[in-house]
């Protein structure tokens, strides 16, 4: 990857040395790798069929037979978590990427063409003024509940903050002399934005995307919890929490286990994102 190669090696080594000093960061990295890895290998790792019900094994607590217990319809929770994670991560990633695909160009255009700045950023403010959950409700109402609606909601929730982050990073870049130098060399605006401005915004964007990914997972799970996303019996973390909600007193593990997985996943993304921010983009530290 050309852009990561250009990150001064001192930053990379700072990240590595920080990894050695910070046990929580270590744990987060290991957790992330484990969670993402096992989600990808769900087909091989899952001990049971995630949608196979069993009337005799309903709402069983964790045991040797069912490591994380079963839900009210006797489905293995571990298997459902593994497949649910895969779906959650995929929707989060799709939402993030499509949001960035719109937000990054918007932010760069706003920074590079001062005339567009006002209009574009006020438009972003309008989008930002809707709570993401509300937007999700509206989109689910328009396209119907399902994967598409969730991805669109996550993308919309990403566009405005991504545009802002990109704009602020690009604003410092476009005023540097090498951008004027690129104009002197006769490059077109598109070439300058793509080859000069964007690569110099990547540290901020990498940091932002990592932090944002955790938030999107939470948002996606929330939408599913509200019944706007993936419909049962397809395993999805938010759906599982929603199904376990009614049994919190009698079989608390049904809701608590997916909740814990979401918590660990989001927390890990935040901790790793913070570490990346400190290493790659110290100016962003608040």
């Amino acid at each position: 990857m050309a852009s990561s190669a250009a990150i001064p090696s001192s930053r990379v080594s700072a990240l590595v040395s920080r990894l050695g000093r910070d046990p929580i960061l270590w744990i987060s990295v290991i957790l992330l790798v484990t969670i993402i890895g096992s989600a990808f290998l769900a087909d091989w790792l899952a001990p049971y069929n995630p949608i196979q019900t069993s009337l005799r094994a309903r709402s069983k607590p964790p045991s040797l037979q069912f490591l994380l217990g079963t839900d009210e319809q006797g489905r293995d929770i571990l298997s459902r978590i593994l497949f649910g994670l895969r779906l959650t991560l995929m929707t989060g990633l799709l939402g993030l990427l499509s949001g960035l695909a719109v937000g990054i160009p918007t932010g760069m255009l706003a920074a590079y063409f001062p005339r567009l700045d006002m209009a574009l950023m006020r438009l972003m403010d309008v989008i930002l003024s809707f709570p993401a959950i509300l937007f999700g409700l509206a989109i689910a109402g328009a396209v119907g509940p399902g994967l598409t609606g969730i991805v669109i909601s996550l993308a919309v929730a990403t566009i405005a903050p991504a545009a802002r982050i990109t704009r602020s990073a690009a604003l410092t870049v476009v005023n540097l002399e090498f951008v004027v130098g690129a104009r002197m060399v006769g490059l077109t605006n598109a070439q300058i934005l793509w080859r000069y401005v964007l690569p110099n915004c990547t540290p901020a964007l990498i940091v932002y995307s990592t932090l944002r990914f955790g938030q999107l997972i939470l948002l996606g799970a929330s939408l599913s919890f509200l019944g706007l996303g993936i419909a049962p019996p397809t395993p999805e973390l938010g759906v599982m929490v929603s199904q376990g909600r009614g049994l919190l007193l009698t079989a608390p593990h049904i809701a608590i286990i997916p909740c814990t997985v979401i918590l660990l996943l989001v927390l890990s993304f935040n901790i790793v994102g913070d570490a990346l921010r400190d290493a790659l983009d110290p100016q962003l530290r608040v």
Binding site: A6, F178, A182, G186, N200
Partner: peptide, 22 residues
């Protein structure tokens, strides 16, 4: 670009006049 080629410029600050990613 043939016109652009004829006039070129060197800037004051060599630390900001070169793209750090190239």
């Amino acid at each position: 670009r043939q016109m652009r080629r004829r006039v070129q410029m060197i800037f004051q600050d060599p630390y900001s006049s070169l793209n750090p990613r190239m």
